[in-house]
Amino acid sequence: MSAAETEDRRSWMPYLLSAPALLLFIAIVLVPLAMTVLLSFHDWGQYKGIETVFILKNWREIWSDGYFHEVFLRTFRVAFLVTLLTAVLGAPEAYILSRMKSPWKGIFLLVVIGPLLISVVARTLGWALLFGGSGGVVNKALLNLGVISTPIPFMFTETGMMVALAHVLMPFMVLSVWAALQKLDPQIENAALSLGASQMTVLRRIVLPQIMPGILAGAIIVFALAASAFATPSIIGGRRLKVASTLAYDEFLNTLNWPLGAAVAVLLLIALVLIIVGSNRIIERRYAEVFR
């Protein structure tokens, strides 16, 4: 066999080997996605059902109707604030965890990851039980103690949605920062100390910049999951407070306006991809040195 022949076969090998996975990916991701995109251009009427035509009606509706603007704005506002909340609480949490001694470290890490092991629905209902209306345990206690005169609103509020989402998504932030912290050389902090830096300065000038990539990676994950979350917003937001994913769900299953639901879903996907890719670009450029 000549060398060229061997070379030829080698270059085909990777494609051949990845073909099964590629086919599966095309069948269960790309095809439905393409079909959803197509669907968003179809027409729909109360009595005629779905018409397979190519029109921009659904997109125009989303573009011009203030209701959709409100929903999308809410979706990204909630996602952004949830991301901020997890970063502000999760980064220090991860740092404290990494500084704990051996048995506690493992126990508290488990506590942090805990929420991931419980069903989203059970967890969200737990929050609802704590704060739901005047019947919620915490509200009841505070009311009885006289700390507050009206129950803290939680159900059907954006705040409630954010708190519950932040709780659910906290592990992703903590684990991502945790991974960045593991790469830190403890002697680097010692070096800064020996040069006369205070503990606060070490945290701010030495530790934070080094774990920034971890925080940002966590932020991207949390943002994407928060913007596309379904169970938590639908339980806490109910039918009144819609976000993009619950809106799409409603169009599909309640109104049965599949094309409009598809347009909402596709728009959410496009917006998410743009935001994530864009911020990733900026981050990679900004932190080129730390990422290497």
């Binding site: 050389d185 002697q187 010692n190 070096a191 910049p209 080094q210 040195e289 730390v290």
Partner: peptide
């Protein structure tokens, strides 16, 4: 021994 330079 490990230099401990600030990488950023």
């Amino acid at each position: 021994q490990s230099y401990a330079l600030f990488p950023h």
